[in-house]
């Protein structure tokens, strides 16, 4: 439980509407997206060949990887295109406090320990614990 921490990342207005920005938090590359009514965060690299997901086109609550157009859910981290894809990206909870985006990330040391856990399992565990996103502002 206590192996995660909330990090103040950046001012909300630094992330344009329906775009993403990448940020390095605690040694981890994370892509943060502004969907207007909420902010979502996932790991920054595509499970296919490491494409930079923050640079993708946002369509609803998914992002399309700019390299080969894999489609990744920002809510669950699962791949929605191509179908039947077991790969998955870790998602991170977010929250907004006085215009600043906060992201919850594993502590560096914990992260190392958690590596063996598949991201899907991680997400499932977290999803059952609490909602994955927080309302903007």
């Amino acid at each position: 439980m206590n192996n995660k921490q909330w990090i103040r990342v950046t001012a909300m207005q630094n992330i344009p509407l329906r775009e993403g920005r990448s940020v390095n938090v605690a040694g981890r590359e994370i892509a943060i997206f502004n969907l207007g009514d909420r902010v979502l965060a996932i790991d920054g690299r595509c499970p296919h060949q490491g494409g930079p997901l923050a640079e993708g086109i946002v369509t609803g609550s998914t992002v399309v990887c700019p390299l080969h157009a894999w489609k990744i859910s920002l809510e669950t981290g699962s791949i929605t295109k191509p179908d039947e894809n077991p790969a998955c990206v870790a998602t991170h909870r977010t929250r907004i406090e006085s215009g600043i985006v906060l992201v919850e990330v594993p502590e560096a040391s914990q992260e190392m320990e958690e590596r063996p856990l598949s991201c899907r399992e991680q997400n499932r565990a977290r999803l059952s614990a609490s909602p994955s996103s927080s309302p903007a502002l």
């Binding site: 990090i7 103040r8 990342v9 344009p16 920005r21 940020v23 938090v25 600043i100």
Partner: peptide, 17 residues
């Protein structure tokens, strides 16, 4: 067109990696 168009955002809080 946007302040962070070309900028790599640095987190406000540094965490020890």
């Amino acid at each position: 067109r946007h302040p962070t168009q070309f900028v790599q955002i640095e987190p406000l809080e540094k965490v020890q990696a």
